[in-house]
Nucleic acid binder design. Structure first.
Lengths: 341, 341
DNA sequence: CTGAAAGCGCTTACAG
DNA sequence: CTGAAAGCGCTTACAG
């Protein structure tokens, strides 16, 4: 009584075979309209639901996507980079709309993502968000590709990177935000954030930064760059080094908002006024960027579109369609951390 | 060749029966040590992974938990209340550690959570985070209970609420933070946030607030309360009303950080200094609360412990153990929005 | 349009 | 300690 109804229970009550029940519930055109209605009515009445495990086993699929997050060295408890957190909602939503369930896990929970998700039939494909060092990560991507795993990742787009990437135009973002500072008549620039193969997104932002300086005759001397990973602490310490060095700067482009928040704090702690003495800008438009003091000028990436595109591309990959990497545009969000009133 | 190995492939190579392979891989004591090692070696070599669907179907379970988030009216794109977002990491982590997968979805994606998760065998249990109006939500909880669904929720603890709740001591939090303001010699108090059955957490915080005022001989006149839902906009508009009313207040307890951020903005826009003229405090200790100007004094809930406890309790429920609701302690985080320097 | 039957890949009671 | 067999609840080719 209390135990779950199966398709046989419905078949019995409807006076048809179990095969017919299965067909009717899946809206097969093979089934007579009348039979179909009857079966559906009984199914509803018995509160019948197709058993996912049985259905998936039979069809050799899972109708589930896996979202693998990178465990970030964040200051709060979430362990997830706030930028990725804002993407989570749209990925969840897009998966659900496509009729797929979404499994969420951390990348470091497993060594072999393919084995743990696709081989076990837990997921039909994988979405990757974030990573530590790209040079290490690349090997994992190559491995996934060799195993013919269906996966998409958010990040820099480069023909040499394994797999399909969806990402924003980091070069353009770096260029635009630097141009914004140049338009404000800032003279002495610095870039804070790693600018090498370990972090290709940051590198592209840096290259956009350099290009903007170059186009404005500011190459050479003022192309100052200090490495930092994407945390407030790292930004704080990089900025402290810069301040100690005595180099005069009046414009700082940070590779991420988290870095910028740390950098801003370091300058304030040294008694330097932001933006009066130095303009500071970030990248990502994380929720906290609106609340910093002063509010942070930054580069926004469309996280809603990003989530939708990641899911859409992955589903295409799963249906063996050809999928192109996608480069999305960025948008400058001007707030008070850059503009002198 | 390229197709996935099954237990039969291993059986063939190991020269044993498929049953023995299954037993060996599950570390059954029935299997000879030698046989077990051989089977495991071959499994590793063939990159064999147990098919989840088959295994789950057979065992009539899913080893999966469902996390149902409430789609909040947030200002950013995530659609998820930042407080719950910080819990996501620890829930993900705790599930993985218990050997369970975590399915994430929005509550409004479905009308019948039981049917959509437990009846389909997609999940063995459900974790609920957030809701809109508690009076509506309560019916859903009652329904879940009637269907004997395994579920736990984060929220107010009340014997009359259906199901098992894990939550922080909202009454104590409201009391402590109000006492903090009293200790600062504030005189005229207001509480901003709904204080009725629609939002039991807010109500408990309000009751703690009232109790603290009462104990300090401040009951009666100063027990001012203005309703607001947990968004910056709602806080802003409630504070604007308060300001317009001309009532003098020098201490405002907000039911959440989001409300407090809006309230603070409204006062600043009216030229009132925070905290010099009015102390403003929030509740939740969301990431952005550290960055507001001035940084927000608030009540912190231990999100890591909360996530772990939710998962632990749900697993106990699944194994049909008796589970008690859990009330966790809170901690006041004093920042500059309350304290005059 | 419908039914009987096979089979997806496991786990486990049963028999030895 | 091991194997043959049943069965979890579906979907779908096959036959009519």
């Amino acid at each position: 009584m209390k135990s779950k109804a199966t398709s046989f229970d419905i078949a019995y009550q409807a006076g048809v075979s179990q095969s017919t029940v299965s067909r009717a519930l899946r809206d097969s055109p093979l089934v007579n309209q009348e039979t179909r209605d009857k079966v559906k009515a009984i199914a509803r009445e018995l509160n019948y639901k197709v058993d996912k495990n049985a259905s998936n086993l039979r069809q050799q699929q899972s109708r589930t996507l896996a979202l693998l997050l990178f465990e970030d060295p964040t200051t709060d408890d979430s362990l997830i980079n706030p930028f990725f957190l804002s993407m989570l909602g749209s990925i969840t939503r897009a998966s659900a709309q496509a009729g797929y369930d979404l499994l969420v896990s951390f990348q470091n929970m497993s060594d072999d993502w393919h084995a743990d998700f696709e081989d076990t039939n837990k997921a039909d494909g994988i979405i990757l968000l974030g990573y530590g060092d790209f040079d290490d990560y690349r090997d994992k991507l190559t491995q996934l590709e060799e195993q013919q795993t269906h996966f998409v990742r958010w990040g820099a787009i480069d023909e040499n990177h394994p797999g399909v990437s969806i990402g924003c135009d980091n070069f353009q973002g770096g260029f635009d935000i630097t141009q914004h500072l140049i338009d404000l008549r800032r003279k002495q620039f610095a870039f804070i954030g790693g600018a090498d193969s370990h972090a290709p997104e940051f590198l592209a932002r840096y290259q956009g930064y350099c290009k903007a300086l170059e186009e404005n005759g500011k190459a050479g001397d003022s192309v100052c760059q200090i490495s930092a990973i994407s945390t407030e602490e790292s930004g704080y310490s990089a900025a402290s080094d810069l301040i100690k060095s005595g180099d005069k700067v009046d414009a700082i482009v940070c590779a991420s908002d988290l870095i910028a928040i740390g950098v801003m704090q370091a300058f304030k702690d040294s008694g330097v006024e932001v933006p009066d003495e130095v303009s500071i800008v970030g990248y990502d438009n994380i929720p906290a960027s609106r609340f910093t003091n002063p509010p942070l000028t930054t580069v926004a990436q469309n996280t809603i579109l990003a989530g939708e595109l990641l899911v859409k591309s992955l589903l295409e990959l799963i249906s063996n369609e050809e999928v192109e990497p996608q480069l999305m545009p960025v948008e400058i969000v001007v707030r008070k951390s850059s503009v002198i009133m």
